[in-house]
Design a protein around this nucleic acid. Sequence first.
DNA 1: CGTCAGGTTTGTT
DNA 2: AACAAACCTGAC
Length: 303
Amino acid sequence: MKHELIQDSNKIILKNVKDFEPKDIFECGQCFRWKKEDDASYTGVAYNRLLNVKKVNNEIHFKNTNYQDFLNIWVNYFDLNTDYSLIKKRLSNEDKVMEKATSFGDGVRILRQEPWETIISFIVSANNNIPRIMKAIELMCSRFGNEVGIYNGKKHYSFPEPKVLANLKPEDLSACNMGYRGPYIIKTAKQILSNPNQIDLLQGINTDICREGLMELSGVGPKVANCIAFFAFGKLDAFPVDVWVKRLMEFFYFNEEMKPKEIEAFAKKQYGQYAGYAQQYLFYYGRELGIGKGGAKVVGYNS
DNA sequence: CGTCAGGTTTGTT
DNA sequence: AACAAACCTGAC
């Protein structure tokens, strides 16, 4: 690691950090448990630790932690040993779209999230929107997780273990605004519980088999499986196709309606081992160009 | 009040 | 293998 690190009381400061923008990281849709504070910092829980992250000029301040946890947990969680400038450079070489796309969303990093939490979180994300996903998960954690600490006057909770969720009733989860996803969650929790090695196995295998394995879980289809493979298992070539990516890919590359499977296949061929990152930068580029619902506001890109 | 949202499951061809 | 319909819930 090339970053200059300063140890303060209960706080770690990193200097000269490139490609690290908290808003890009925590609000790009990859995670659902980081909340923005009034001072524009973000507070969240991972690996049973409560952390607050703030960017101050060119420094990143990690509060409520220590040197040991920083090295053992947060360096990996924030993917600090990956050179995002290099990834952007590689993607730029693929085509004109990526050449432009990588110049936006400058500070995004892909968090290396915990598999169990990621599996359940993305089951919740199906046919859902971010504010509702966050609210539902927050409710579930506060009711069925353990308290991990207080920050800025607010209590924070761990993500409930498989055995806890496996023993819930659907109505327990309905009460957390999970809607019809409650039974999926309970069933998946039981599946993981009855096969404790499942997660370790998925960690070590290739992307396609990892995705197949994930799709055997209840509530996990192609899109959610790709999200979990990418965000939790480090399968960097996984390319989740949701309605937004679909629209964007159709706009930038096809100029006609495509099936998600066709788009995924094209993406893997086009972007190779970094397809997942390409998907992230695509979002920011789409936002920059104002390409949204109901087709493109910008026309004639390929003409 | 109807439509729709960051898909998956279940049931039909 | 491919397609349609149902599904919680909250925002517009």
